[in-house]
Amino acid sequence: MARPVPDPVRPGQESVWGYPRPPRVERERRRVQIDFGGTRIVDTDDVVRVLETSHPPVYYVPIAAFAVALTLGQGASFCEFKGAARYFDVHGGGGVVAERAAWNYPRPMPGYEVLHDRVAVYAGPMDAVILGGETVEAQPGGFYGGWVTSDLAGPFKGVPGSMGW
């Protein structure tokens, strides 16, 4: 399948089509806040992001940043770059649970060691995911965990017809 035509980049935006493959990990300066079950479960500025061609960034925060428990969820997956991932069920206020709503790489591959003891969260099941004061949107498609913000230009992997990108 042919690579899609990147959307125009407006001032203050970056194109996900300028992101590298293999992915790059970099420090993120914006604060991450996550609300679930009416409770703020994460509030931290200790954040890294992973940038990969055609994907909105995936943000990782320390496991220790969670004000609630994460419990090991069902299943696993494998990334050719980052390694084997495990999934977590996220617990929020009022006893709500989002199954497989977060993941991490307990033994990341070389070059991705900073992801050890960090967790990424799917935005969709949460009440709100806020990055630097902006409420994010979930990456389309349900499988990938990137966060879409106003400073990104797509199109983003996950939309219908993007499997071959």
Rank of each mutant, 00 (worst) to 15 (best):
G124N: 10
P108Q: 07
G124P: 00
R107S: 01
P160M: 07
V119E: 01
V136G: 03
L131Q: 03
I130W: 09
V129T: 12
L152C: 13
P108V: 04
G154F: 04
L131H: 09
A120K: 10
V121S: 06
G141A: 08
W103V: 05
R107A: 06
V119Q: 03
D127S: 08
N104D: 15
A120S: 15
V148L: 08
A101G: 12
P108L: 04
G146I: 05
G132P: 07
Y105W: 08
A101L: 10
P110L: 11
E134P: 01
M126S: 13
P106F: 02
E113L: 09
E99L: 04
S150M: 01
V129D: 02
Y105R: 04
R118L: 07
F156E: 12
A123T: 09
M126F: 10
F143T: 13
V129L: 07
D127P: 10
L152P: 13
Y122C: 11
R100W: 05
L115V: 05
A123E: 15
M109P: 00
V121W: 08
N104I: 00
A138G: 12
D127T: 05
R100I: 01
A102F: 00
V159P: 00
A102W: 02
E137M: 11
G133C: 03
V136F: 03
A102D: 00
P140V: 08
A102I: 05
V121P: 04
D127M: 10
L152W: 13
G133M: 01
P140W: 08
A128I: 00
Q139A: 15
G142S: 10
E134D: 02
Q139F: 09
V129A: 15
D151T: 15
V119D: 01
T149R: 12
M109H: 13
G154D: 08
V148E: 06
P140K: 06
R118W: 05
T135V: 13
L152A: 04
F143M: 11
D117A: 12
L152N: 13
A138K: 02
G133I: 03
T149V: 15
L152T: 12
S150N: 04
G158A: 10
H116S: 08
V97M: 10
P108E: 05
G141M: 08
V114L: 07
G124I: 01
G158H: 13
P160E: 13
